[in-house]
Design a binder for these strands. Structure first.
Lengths: 192, 192
DNA sequence: CCCCTTTCTTGCCATATGGCAAGAGAAATC
DNA sequence: GATTTCTCTTGCCATATGGCAAGAAAGGGG
């Protein structure tokens, strides 16, 4: 097998060569143009993706119609609505390409077949889900325990690339503040 | 098999009778006294539990030493630190009994054996994890989109029993506010 | 049953963050 | 290249929530 992008994605999963040869060809390469929706509110997720190139954002729309960023994604990341994909229910979130994107896509039925037949595949999948859970919980605790400025600085340190590709307004809602406040925080930091 | 408490817990999982007979005896009945720790910061979770009777709380301690409630548990609920249990890493959270508790406990090795050998068991487990993820995300969005008063009223509606068994201080940190503010919110509501 | 500890409430004032609107700057469109 | 649209910044003031401390109320242990 020639070196496939997905070999990087799966390199930590303790897969045998045969397993990788069974798994990787199931993914289909798909492209999205900037602003395309990978998933829209009300639909049930039929796929998930690994991003080879580009940026994406997930967001929910609150009762007042304001959107709230829930996550950002780039090269190597899994893009998945865990709840909708696994519970087979309509999602309340949207996932949108922030730039043109190249992705590798897997559908639910194929996932299920791999999940139930390959032990290392389910171990790896479970691990990804639990890691997402951990990040969500950390974000949650940070929302309660930390000031907006601290959350901003942590994001800046952990995902500096997104500041090149995401508007401050979208970053602000992820941090739980308004773009106005984020602008003031940035000003304050730059004058330190 | 006589009617076991856990048959209720597993009744939605599409298990065959044989599967239930294989799964349920693996759980061990354990008791905790009020204030006992089921899991303490720095330890790696070796077990998880279903609560038959009693109340428990999980919480994290922030950098200033203040504790933040992350969840409350009672009859029928699964009590598990997903991250520590599955990633086999030391936890940053604590789980403590709020009342005397009777629980059914499963250890990691037994879980793994059931998980990899019984398809319906892994489907049910994955579903539980995803539901926890969903609740965590909802809480997260609510922290950003809703006022403290709305979060309080939602909790009151969704988990009224916890108000009988948990101090307002512990509920306040779950809602992301101080006990002082919660007290004022309650006053305001009672005068409506 | 009484004491001690913990929980809850309330007042006073401080602080973080929001809402709105105007202007500046940057980017997309024609 | 000019125009339109979106993004970001800034000022003014409003509001939600916090910090602290004191008292009231409730609960637990000897």
């Amino acid at each position: 097998m020639e070196k496939h992008f997905l070999t990087n994605v799966f390199k930590e999963g303790l897969f045998t060569l045969q397993e990788l040869e069974q798994i990787i060809p199931q993914f289909r390469e798909v492209s999205f143009a900037k602003n395309d929706f990978l998933l829209a509110e009300g639909k049930t997720a039929q796929h998930y993706w690994f991003i080879q190139q580009g940026y994406a954002r997930s967001f929910a729309v609150d009762t007042e119609g304001k959107d709230i960023s829930t996550d950002f994604y780039t090269t190597g990341d899994i893009v998945i609505d865990w709840t909708s994909f696994f519970l087979r229910t309509p999602t309340r979130e949207n996932i949108q390409a922030l730039t043109d994107c190249t992705c590798w896509q897997l559908d639910f039925e194929t996932f299920q077949q791999l999940f139930h037949s390959i032990e290392s595949f389910r171990e790896a999948g479970r691990k990804r889900l639990v890691q997402s859970y951990f990040e969500l919980k950390s974000h949650n605790i940070s929302m309660i325990a930390d000031q907006a400025k601290d959350r901003y600085q942590r994001l800046l340190k952990e995902k500096p690339q997104i500041f090149q590709n995401v508007s401050l307004k979208q970053i602000a809602t992820y941090l739980g503040i308004t773009d106005t406040s984020l602008s003031r925080i940035r000003k304050e930091i730059s004058s330190e």
